[in-house]
């Protein structure tokens, strides 16, 4: 674990963190013992970066909420000022053939999660006029952040109703039946806004966008800091442009790899078949020399022991 810590420390020495409204947000991090430390605040990005370079936290999180006193431990006394709108799309929760029962990350499942993220971004734009910023979570999914001042005042009930809208809960197609000439009833067919999603849903039966409902409704949520390292993979939580999302999932993961150099000898604790673009095919007790990023990923997932760095 010390080796991983040293790598994380090294990453944060040169990391370029960006946190809008940093002084108004609560920060939290995972220590090497797996404990979550909360209710901290930073005055600027450089202070945060230096802290990360010194402490090498395994995971760094910040609040979607803005507070007048973000470091206060008493939630009531923090002074909630508003919150970004965030969405979490996790491949682990997608009921697709590629994602069902997935344990280690596969590109096929990540492609499915990416499709869902694209669908969400399009819906936010076409239906609500919102510009979302996509972030690869550094593991099995994507986050979408909306920082428009318009959304910051939404309370959790309103966010829950927005979740219902995004997930098409309670959709009643009869609401779109209109009476045309000679009293003939038809479904409205206009490819505008949400009607476009509904028309497409009538073809494939899929009206919903699959998001983690709890995350979006929570106005105090802590979410992984963009450009921080994911404690489950050691991949970068990577902000993406719209054109990035058009690229294959493989390219996104490639860019999220923080530790490219070198290789590491490992012993397998559990059998491993296919991971990302690699066919590993090793059983319990077997040894192998793997690229550093893959060895660290499997180590953090509990599949291997690290023997030595080559």
């Amino acid at each position: 674990m010390r080796y991983i810590e040293a790598l994380f420390r090294d990453y944060y020495r040169r990391a370029q963190l960006e946190v809008p409204d940093i002084e108004r947000r609560e920060f939290a991090w995972l220590t090497r013992d797996g404990a979550m430390v909360r209710h901290r605040s930073f005055k600027g990005v450089e202070e945060l970066r230096s802290f990360c370079a010194k402490e090498a936290p395994l995971g760094v999180y910040y609040s979607v909420a803005l507070y007048s006193d973000p470091g206060n431990k008493d939630m009531e006394a923090k002074g909630w000022l508003g919150a970004d709108l965030v969405f979490d799309i996790d491949g682990d929760h997608l009921d697709t053939p590629a994602c069902r029962g997935m344990e280690l990350l596969t590109l096929r499942c990540l492609e499915d999660a990416k499709e869902e993220a694209i669908k969400l971004l399009e819906a936010l734009d076409n239906e609500l006029g919102l510009a979302g910023e996509a972030v690869y979570s550094g593991h099995r999914g994507f986050h979408v952040h909306v920082r428009d001042p318009e959304v910051r005042g939404l309370d959790s009930g309103e966010r829950r109703r927005l979740v219902d809208f995004i997930t098409a809960r309670g959709l009643d197609l009869s609401k779109f039946v209109v009476r045309g000439r000679r009293g003939v009833e038809n479904l409205l067919e206009e490819a505008a806004g949400s009607l476009r999603r509904i028309m497409m849903g009538r073809e494939d039966g899929n009206y919903a966008i699959h998001i983690d409902e709890v995350v979006t409704a929570d106005v105090h949520r802590l979410i992984r800091l963009p450009r921080s390292l994911n404690n489950k993979t050691a991949f970068i939580t990577l902000p993406l442009s719209k054109s990035d999302l058009d690229k294959p999932a493989e390219e996104i993961v490639e860019r999220a790899i923080a530790f490219r150099k070198g290789s590491i000898s490992v012993t397998f604790k559990k059998p491993v078949g296919e991971v990302l673009w690699e066919k590993i095919n090793r059983g319990v007790g077997e040894e192998a020399v793997l690229p550093a990023y893959m060895a660290i990923y499997l180590y953090l997932q509990g599949y291997v022991d690290l023997n030595g760095v080559r």
Binding site: N126, E127, R161
Partner: peptide, 23 residues
């Protein structure tokens, strides 16, 4: 945002049952 704030909290009023275009 005003629809979510003021619409009665009943299934009939779910926003998905209204056309929503650019906000």
């Amino acid at each position: 945002t005003h629809y979510l704030r003021y619409a009665p909290q009943e299934p009939d009023w779910a926003m998905i049952n209204r056309p929503v275009v650019k906000g």
